[in-house]
Design a protein around this nucleic acid. Sequence first.
DNA 1: TTGTAAGCGTTATCAC
DNA 2: GTGATAACGCTTACAA
Lengths: 358, 358
Amino acid sequence: MRSKSATGPPPAADGHERQRRTVGLRDVARMAGVSTATVSRALNAPERVSAALRERVAAASARLAWVPDAAARALATRRSGAIGAVFPTLSHGDFARAAEALQGELTGHGYALLLACSHYDLAHEHLLVRQFVERGVDAVVLVGNAHDPQTIDLLERRGVPYVKTFNHDPEWRHHSVGPDNRRAMHSLTRYLLRLGHRRFGLIAQSSRNNDRAAARLEGVRAALSEEGLSVRPQHFVEGRWSIAEGRALFERIIEKRPWPTAIICGNAYLAVGAVLEATRRGIALPDEMSIVGYDDIEIMQELPVPITTLRVRSDEVGRVAAAYVVDLLAGRQPSTALECEVEIIERSSSGPAPRASR
Amino acid sequence: MRSKSATGPPPAADGHERQRRTVGLRDVARMAGVSTATVSRALNAPERVSAALRERVAAASARLAWVPDAAARALATRRSGAIGAVFPTLSHGDFARAAEALQGELTGHGYALLLACSHYDLAHEHLLVRQFVERGVDAVVLVGNAHDPQTIDLLERRGVPYVKTFNHDPEWRHHSVGPDNRRAMHSLTRYLLRLGHRRFGLIAQSSRNNDRAAARLEGVRAALSEEGLSVRPQHFVEGRWSIAEGRALFERIIEKRPWPTAIICGNAYLAVGAVLEATRRGIALPDEMSIVGYDDIEIMQELPVPITTLRVRSDEVGRVAAAYVVDLLAGRQPSTALECEVEIIERSSSGPAPRASR
DNA sequence: TTGTAAGCGTTATCAC
DNA sequence: GTGATAACGCTTACAA
């Protein structure tokens, strides 16, 4: 019945339905000769409906080409079925791959992905998260650990579950999925130490608003200091994310002699730039110098001097993050395997430390 | 009031409200001493509410930290404020950039972006679009012109506006935004013709389920046939999207002599692979051979032999697509400038045709 | 198992 | 300009 109020005015023309624009669950119910509750159940809990009715409902809904209305469902259940994710950007292959995997996994579980980019701006991230919360997302996926306190606050107060990604910190294990940047760089540095390197250069990605970059730096420094070593200030340079920047920063480093025998780059693009510039200058890799990167992109293995780097399964980051929130929302205990594998891919840009260097 | 039915059982404990989980517009209304209608108006059409009340509503909603519920609004307005986009993948830089720009522009207009990847699978794309439609997206953004007829049908029957992107076809000008792939490749081919090339090789991206790739091929072939030329079958190769593939396909081409003097690649990665393999084999570019690509990625200008290519503003594609749907949904006449600029970036991988070739 | 009907939190159509 | 109140289309106690 449409009119519920006994005191209100009688509906204009009850008895025959007013014209409806879209077919709804009610129409399906009527056609199948069942109640709306049954149609709803047939859809959401088929096992609680007798086979016969289930059949009739299915037939009717097919005949009417009924498409359930998500807004109505969301209103009734207080769940939107949407997950919001904020990435710094999609222009970096790792985030793009993670986003893609995240979406695939979420879709597979009936969730949709609302995606936005913060451009490494925490204030903007806050706005985006706020928008997501207003849109009623069931959970939020964030990148890194550095966030506006208000953002976390908002999420926590509204009871919206969230995961941090791309920087698994063993201490916050139930919230962060991804590689342990610090540990990964630590092991890459140790690899170079084992090769006999003692003088290091560091081409870092700016660690402003980027805790992953900061963690990588820490990893390098920790490994070095365990051997009583450190990077000389003149051999530490920091910059944006690009091949051209890698080139420029490499030039800055080799202005100061004696050169480092090994240069560690904060990401794949910086490494490509450094290697390209080194070979352009006729510096023999790895005989005169070793250069390594973080993250593996196709070009690294295709260059005349293939580049040693850490392979991070970014798609796994996305997949695991998705699984985590799905489990959480299903009331299941999320998997505890939140750290993603990292592997050193050894190529020709690195080798034993030279006896002497320029 | 909660109970509307005069015949139903009296509400358990009316008189004092039952506990409500979240603050709603009703609470704001009560606190401000106005009706719910006024609160709603104060939010959506402030100019229709007196300044005094507007003030009180604002104060109350701030004090209660009220966050409007998107699902309820969507149900009432029949608009979700969400736009769905299906890209083939995000791993190709051009799509990632477009997605990012699309989102930025949409967010700027109060819309959210639901994103999904089809992996070049039309059936899967259909599923995703269906999911979007069920979620009540206000519009859909698609890539390319090749789609499952059912997909277009669904959209049209449900009256969901959509745009096709990345392949502007002058004939369908009101639906497709992006570069005109055919024309772009036509002009790149003419550029090579002007340089005196007459024997061409073609390293194409598979045109299966990819009308952009197909359009590029057409462009090349049209330009050649205008000069009475064509690509010899043994110099036409097709493959996947990767640097390694570009390498392999380049090898296939140079198995057959005489070599082409110019090789046109269907995308940036194939071009990078081809150039890398050519230089590895000591083939002098551009003296012995010219190689060009489609789309510009950073590495192309950083390689020892920088690569001539077509620059496509993918971010503009995203931005224009967003503007298009926003205009459409606002009832405005969308801009008619749906074609995105393409520019030939001339670098050292191309030059005048050699007198003779191997 | 199935049906009845009360919400879910807004917007929008009316009257005033 | 403001206020009642009926939708919006679905889910879910509770009853049968």
